[in-house]
């Protein structure tokens, strides 16, 4: 269902839980589907012993992809016109992510949203914007 401009107000929010207790297997799934096989995301031995991180971590694009599902659930299918993010902190196996879209402006049949995804400690892992067509 698409959004109606008449029903939207600046400051309206929409929140979804994207994932609870992120599994390494989901990160592997994303590697396989996206084609990004960087061992930093799936190879614990390489990541801890060579790259010196505490464990594998999610692709930024996995977080962006999961956040995108929240957005399309909110604005409707095929309605996004822009979507951009900065990756502000790494996402680790075991993380639980919640994502919120906040209405910033509504004009000319478009809604501009602020987008933010946080982990279970309230740390922002993704920060960005989206724009979508509204009725």
């Amino acid at each position: 269902m698409a959004l109606k401009a008449a029903d939207l107000n600046v400051g309206d929010t929409y929140t979804e839980c994207l994932v609870e207790d992120l599994k390494r297997t989901q990160i592997v799934q994303y590697a396989g589907a996206s084609g990004d096989y960087n061992p930093l995301h799936t190879d614990e031995v390489f990541t801890t012993e060579v790259a010196k991180y505490p464990s594998v971590f999610a692709h930024g694009m996995l977080t962006m992809g999961m956040t995108g599902a929240m957005l399309t659930n909110y604005v409707g299918d095929g309605r996004l016109t822009k979507y951009g993010v900065r990756f502000t902190s790494q996402v680790w196996p075991g993380d639980t992510l919640n994502s919120t879209a906040t209405v910033e402006s509504i004009e000319d049949g478009l809604v501009n949203l602020n987008v933010e995804t946080v982990n279970q400690d309230g740390v922002k892992v993704l920060s960005g914007y989206a724009q979508a067509r509204v009725d």
């Binding site: 694009m61 016109t81 822009k82």
Partner: peptide, 19 residues
């Protein structure tokens, strides 16, 4: 040091002209 070939992804932006 953040290595693993290619560093890390900092930002990504998409503009959809159609889906």
């Amino acid at each position: 040091g953040g290595g693993g070939g290619g560093g890390l992804h900092a930002e990504q932006h998409f503009e959809y002209h159609r889906h």
